[in-house]
């Protein structure tokens, strides 16, 4: 595996893509090591699917260049197709074919025949634990099983790079965990993966995460590095969690009104506060209790990945608004 010329499975340099007047991607760069899972995050419409389509060679970039498994796209798209697998955001297998028929079809499309085809089919069935559903029409599978089937189908030709566009959207937590276990297994075999997701727990499991916002790559790096970014918790600020017996919503408004509170986010029953200066936790609790007329407990915390993205998004939209007429 390491005999390949580059240590990177994917390298993207300054890729942009326009749809008429809409700029879907702006000057995006990233690189993914072989055997690494790259998590691509960002709000809806930020350009995640567009980036994946470009890397799959079905959409041409307006500007910039990209190498997938060492080959340029879209230049070498034909050769790249043999080396990549793609699980689109929408389920894209045939509803009116059975699990077996879908897998056989994709094996044949990639030119597999006879014993080799059967061998790959059995391997995919075993990997995705699809044995009990072999004769079932894809239309009759539940969301989680559909995704396993889609993953299995995209692996028939043993791709070296795999793209998954929101593979866990709308499936239950157990199915989600199991799908991720499969992804780790593949990464362990040297497959390079790019996964888009909205789930922070999934992002935390990725080797590298990138956050797209308004078509730009806002930040990219290892999750642990991102938590320590100076912009996330600027010098002199601290993060606290405030838990209120009356519920987080009861103190949300008053927390916003406090002069020293820079940022508030609800996390389940608690609030996450970004606080300017050094008020004691007891003081914050007192201020909030006054508003909620219920006991409040405040304790210092480290930022989460979600805090990172929320904070960076806020800074980016402020930067967007401030320099008037900033061209985009």
């Amino acid at each position: 595996m390491n005999s390949s010329p580059s240590e990177f499975g994917i390298e993207v340099r300054g890729v942009s893509r326009d749809f008429g007047p809409v700029r879907a991607l702006h000057d995006v760069s990233l690189s993914v090591r072989r055997g690494e899972i790259y998590g691509l995050l960002g709000p809806n419409g930020s350009g995640k699917s567009t980036l994946i389509r470009i890397l799959c060679g079905i959409l041409a970039p307006t500007a910039g260049s990209a190498l997938v498994d060492g080959l340029p796209v879209p230049g070498e798209s034909e050769a790249v197709r043999q080396r990549i697998g793609y699980v689109p955001q929408r389920f894209s297998l045939y509803h009116d074919l059975t699990v077996d028929e879908n897998l056989a079809f994709f094996a044949e499309i990639y030119g597999l025949r006879g014993a080799r085809k059967r061998e790959r089919q059995e391997w995919a069935i075993a990997l995705a634990h699809l044995e009990p559903y072999r004769q079932r029409l894809a239309a009759h599978l539940s969301g989680g099983w559909k995704q396993r089937l889609a993953l299995a189908a995209s692996l028939m030709h043993e791709p070296r790079v795999l793209f998954l566009d929101e593979p866990t959207a709308g499936i239950d937590p157990v199915a989600r965990r199991e799908l991720w276990n499969l992804l780790f297994e593949l990464a362990g075999k040297g497959v390079t993966l790019v996964v888009t997701t909205h789930y922070m727990d999934e992002a935390e499991r990725c080797g590298t995460v990138g956050y797209l916002y308004l078509s730009r790559m806002l930040v990219s790096g290892r999750p642990a590095e991102l938590l320590r970014l100076p912009d996330v918790t600027p010098r002199g600020m601290r993060r606290y969690e405030a838990e209120c017996a009356a519920g987080a919503a009861a103190v949300m408004g008053s927390a916003r009104g406090l002069a020293y509170v820079e940022d508030v986010t609800i996390f389940g029953n608690a609030l996450h506060l970004l606080v300017d200066g050094a008020p004691e936790p007891a003081r914050i609790a007192r201020d909030l209790e006054a508003a909620a007329s219920a006991p409040v407990q405040v304790r210092p915390i480290d930022p989460s990945l979600e805090d990172v993205f929320v904070r960076l998004t806020k800074l980016a939209s402020q930067a967007e608004a401030e320099p008037a007429g900033a061209a985009r």
């Binding site: 060679g57 079905i58 197709r81 793609y86 689109p88 499309i109 990639y110």
Partner: peptide
């Protein structure tokens, strides 16, 4: 319409 064409486009067909 069903998006299966997008899947086919990344195959060598």
């Amino acid at each position: 319409e069903r998006g299966t064409l997008e899947q086919l486009m990344v195959t060598p067909v």
